[in-house]
Structure formats: structure tokens, C-alpha cells
């Protein structure tokens, strides 16, 4: 005789629509983690997400809770407005590096400086994924992209921006951590960190941001396992994983 018990399954905060991301894409993993956290905290009815422009533009199709869309880079200010109008709701914005670190740099800096009580999930995959892998402010030195075929040259493009370290100087910022999702252990760790960022908001701590080093196998021209190895290697060397700021 034996009985069966389901111990792991798709979270209910994800819809039945399969993700339209490429194979092994970091966005899918983070979407799943956010949905699991929303399930665990029981906030599906009170959470509002703000989707970016980029690969995750269709995030509202995949999350089974309220998600709105912002103009390119403007997600933090839209989230600010929603949070001020609905202080009892949990509001987060989900942005890629092209959205947050390039066109939306002004918005994220001022939102962080004002110390808005929102949560920001920042996906850093070192290129513009949706439009075909162009150079982003976060692309590594020497990284070959479609707009830097000879590799990123600091003379022409400058140095990769470490956004989390940049935001750490603002008084309004309470929690910053960088994580990766390259293996099961790091996924479990990333989930704890994202959950803490949401709990900070629920407890009224203030502005929290989690930077996730995500893979972009299609544009890096690598398979998912090689992409994760690249994150564990050269990307983690430049963007060091760990707590950057945690004001208790």
C-alpha cells in the first residue's frame, strides 16, 4: 500500500498560459519565484505588479494577480503612484536592465531617493533581450552584442553600471541585495531574498530592491547550462552576489 502526496507544483499565482520566454530564460524562474512567494504570503488579492517594457512586457499574461503596464522605464513612478493611492496594497515593479538602468535610470534614482515603500525586482541579463541582444548599460567589458560586434569597448561605451551599488548611497534605500538563479541552491536563496524584499514593504521598512543576475541564452548564443556557468563565472566576478545594503 502506498499513498501519494504532491510536494512541489506550479504555484496558483501563475496562470495556465505557458511562458513565452526562450528556453532557460531567467525571467521564467523569477516569475515562478514571485508567484510562489505571493502564494506563501497569501497576498494574491492585495498585490499589484507593474510590468516593464522588454521581454517581460507580457508578464500580466502569466501572473494570476493584478498587473499593470508602464511606459518604458517608468515602472517605479507608476508603482509609486499606486502605492500612494493604495497604501494597503503590496506594490512591486519588475524591470529588466534596459528598462531600469538605461531609459528608466532617472525614475529609479528618484524613486530610491524618495524612499518609496515599494519593492523593485531588477533583472540583469547584461543586454536588451527583446530587441535582439543589443548592448545595455550593464553589458560586461568585452561582451559581444549585436551593437558591439567587437566586444564592449570602454572608450566608446564606458563601463558597466552597478546599479545596486549606485543606489546604496541614498538614505531612502533600505534593502539591496544581488542574487543569481543558476542552480537549485541559488534559486532557493533568491526566493528568500525576494520574500524579504516583499516583507520589508509589508512591514513598512521602505524601498527594497533585489537585483537578479539572469541568463539570456538566446542572445548570448549559449545553451542554458553554459549561460548559467557564465553567470557563475565572469558575470558574478563583476556583479558580486550578496547583500549590498540592509538597514534594520
Amino acid at each position: 500500500m502506498s499513498t501519494e502526496k504532491t510536494i512541489y507544483k506550479k504555484p496558483t499565482s501563475l496562470t495556465d498560459r505557458p511562458f513565452t520566454y526562450c528556453w532557460g530564460c531567467g525571467h521564467s524562474t523569477i516569475h515562478k519565484l514571485i508567484a510562489e512567494i505571493v502564494d506563501e504570503l497569501g497576498i494574491r488579492e492585495t498585490i499589484i505588479g507593474v510590468a516593464p517594457v522588454g521581454c517581460a512586457v507580457f508578464a500580466y499574461d502569466f501572473w494570476n494577480f493584478d498587473v499593470t503596464e508602464a511606459a518604458h522605464g517608468r515602472a517605479p513612478v507608476v508603482a509609486t503612484a499606486i502605492k500612494r493611492v493604495h497604501p494597503g496594497k503590496t506594490v512591486f515593479c519588475y524591470q529588466g536592465d534596459g528598462d531600469l538602468a538605461s531609459i528608466g535610470m532617472a525614475e529609479i534614482i528618484h524613486t530610491a531617493n524618495r524612499g518609496e515603500n515599494i519593492t523593485v525586482i531588477f533583472i540583469n541579463n547584461t543586454n536588451y533581450g527583446m530587441t535582439g541582444g543589443q548592448l545595455a548599460p550593464t553589458s560586461l567589458i568585452g561582451q559581444v552584442t549585436t551593437t558591439s560586434p567587437n566586444g564592449r569597448d570602454v572608450k566608446n561605451y564606458g563601463y558597466p553600471i552597478r546599479v545596486s551599488e549606485l543606489l546604496a548611497q541614498f538614505e531612502g534605500v533600505k534593502y539591496l541585495e544581488r542574487v543569481k538563479v543558476t542552480d537549485a541552491v541559488s534559486v532557493i536563496k533568491a526566493k528568500k531574498v525576494i520574500k524579504k524584499a516583499f516583507m520589508n514593504q509589508i512591514n513598512g521598512v521602505g524601498f527594497s530592491m533585489v537585483e537578479v543576475l539572469a541568463s539570456c541564452p538566446a542572445n548570448w548564443r549559449k545553451d542554458p547550462i553554459e549561460s548559467n556557468e557564465m553567470i557563475d563565472g565572469e558575470i558574478s566576478k563583476y556583479y558580486q552576489v550578496g547583500v549590498i545594503k540592509d538597514v534594520k
Binding site: M1, E4, K5, T6, I7, Y8, G24, C25, T29
Partner: peptide, 25 residues
């Protein structure tokens, strides 16, 4: 061994893990 690591790493939430619990007759 129902360790769930495959489910945790699966980006697409495509894996459901079921534990089989043996019960005595």
C-alpha cells in the same frame, strides 16, 4: 527520491513532484 530539485530549477514550472509514501498493510 522526491528531492524536488528538478522542480525548483525548472524555469517554466513544468514539473510536479509527487512523494510516494509507503504505508504498511
Amino acid at each position: 527520491n522526491a528531492c524536488t530539485l528538478c522542480g525548483i530549477i525548472c524555469p517554466d514550472a513544468a514539473i510536479e513532484v509527487i512523494e510516494i509514501i509507503e504505508t504498511e498493510k
